[in-house]
């Protein structure tokens, strides 16, 4: 099974849910085992929830995507420009999750 490596970073308090570690190197299959489609961001979110998230799932995921108030950057670009969860991951991608729910 071929794999790809992506760098995942958490900010804005989200790192507290992931062992208080901001940066993670994640290796995931290049294709989704369930449907053999190329691995996309949606798969990564599920993977992070199932493998790296340590507590309080509801603060990260809602309805199988990130909960409102969490921004996602793909290689420093808003994921809304990249197709959100449908973005197909490439080896070496940098994915950043930023929580905006710190208050003002």
């Amino acid at each position: 099974m071929t794999t790809i490596s992506v760098k995942v970073e958490f900010s804005g308090g989200l790192e507290l849910l992931f062992s208080n570690q901001r940066s993670h190197a994640v290796t995931i299959p290049s294709t989704d085992p369930t449907d053999s489609a190329p691995t996309n961001l949606q798969y990564l979110i599920t993977y992070l929830r199932d493998n790296l998230l340590k507590e309080r799932v509801e603060l990260f995921v809602e309805n199988e995507t990130v909960r409102p108030g969490i921004l996602v950057l793909v290689n420093d670009t808003d994921w809304e420009l990249e197709g959100e969860g449908d973005y197909v991951l490439k080896d070496g991608d940098e994915i950043v999750f930023i929580s905006t729910l710190h208050g003002g």
Partner: peptide, 26 residues
């Protein structure tokens, strides 16, 4: 002064300028 700037823009500014956001108690 940020009343015309949304939370998303604030988060992008903070990320791109590497600001430290302490967070606050809820």
């Amino acid at each position: 002064p940020l009343r015309d700037i949304g939370m998303k823009e604030c988060a992008m500014w903070a990320w791109w300028h590497r600001l430290v956001v302490v967070g606050r108690e809820k």
